[in-house]
Write a protein that binds this DNA or RNA. Structure first.
Lengths: 188, 188
DNA sequence: AACACCGTGTTGGATAGACAACAAACAGTT
DNA sequence: AACTGTTTGTTGTCTATCCAACACGGTGTT
């Protein structure tokens, strides 16, 4: 799956991604130039084109990576067991902590409206397909409920980030899981 | 003098230097292996040897660079003018701020006893050769006085670092210059 | 003593990235 | 409309780094 990358490739992609994220914090995606990204990353511009076709492609691949990671977290725990579902949420929040700047800017509609939508779709699909309690509901209802619950959770996370991650991932995980459980029991 | 470096060289040397400094914070120089440095820096070990002969050489070149930078600061201001001498001290303190971890560990005798000595020699030479007030003194006296003043200043800086750089470089510059001036007027 | 283990210093071949140069597209200026 | 400056893709050559492999010396284990 994830091939063993040459250290040079690994480094180049990392700094290009970091660079775009940094720029996105202050400017709109369309106003950012490839040249600018490369200068900040200290990478030759021609090298950029061996990895990405343009900066839209770069952003797309950044988002791909995040959603892949999220997906991995979602599927590496047994959501039916309460403690494991808690650990899962905690793991995801830790991941967000580690990539704080990324989430902070990507969740900001202005620069990249697609990201939040992708996150929601991903999580909703997971819930609908693998979560028993959601399954028991009628299809239509479960869709709305999951949307409700997930957009709520994402909003809480956004606020958490905006407040400088004052609470620990564990605290937030407990809080968010509580919210979600309450939300899901709404129709029970 | 400083040739335009290929980005790759620049990057490799930077991460190797950072890596050694990081390791020095916890272990003694002699117990650190080349392999370890390369693994932390994520650089192939064979690449290390194209730049440095061993880790002692690496540390030596780190120190070289710092002393060169210090020297540049010392000579880019007119020390006779009070305001410029203040700016100079401030500039040096800012430089220390930017390389905080480096100074913190290198000034710690345990790991690298030579560094503090090099710094002192450098500064003392500067004072003796280019500072009029020190020149007026007898050679022997000026040597001792400069040693006294400089070791005092370095100690103040070490304390400043240990106290997490609470004061601004400007504040510290004013304080230190005051100390030095008072110190130098001792024999006047 | 024989053994396995680990870091060292070095080599050779493969490749990613640096760099310089280019034509083309575009935006703003006069 | 010609002019200036900037970004864009693209290409060819050069070289720094990667990687795997090697012989060597030191250290410790049985």
């Amino acid at each position: 799956m994830s091939q063993k990358l040459d250290r040079r490739k690994k480094y180049t992609r990392k700094v290009l991604k970091d660079s775009l994220i940094t720029l996105l914090a202050n400017k709109s995606l369309s106003s950012i130039t490839v040249k600018e990204i490369c200068e900040l990353a200290d990478i030759n511009r021609s090298t950029f084109y061996t990895h990405y076709t343009d900066h839209y492609d770069l952003l797309h691949k950044i988002e791909d990576e995040i959603t892949e990671d999220m997906n991995r977290y979602l599927h590496s725990y047994d959501y039916e067991k309460e403690e494991e579902s808690l650990q899962m949420t905690e793991k995801i929040l830790e991941y967000i902590t580690e990539n704080r700047l990324m989430f902070q800017t990507l969740l900001n509609h202005q620069s990249a409206p697609t990201f939040e939508k992708r996150l929601m779709d991903l999580t909703r699909n997971f819930m609908i397909n693998t979560w028993p309690r959601a399954n028991e509901l009628r299809t239509e209802e479960s869709k709305y409920l999951s949307s409700f619950v997930i957009s709520g959770a994402i909003h809480v996370i956004k606020e958490w980030i905006a407040q400088d991650l004052k609470e620990s991932p564990r605290e937030m995980a407990e809080m968010i899981n509580q919210f979600i459980n309450n939300g899901l029991s709404y129709f029970e």
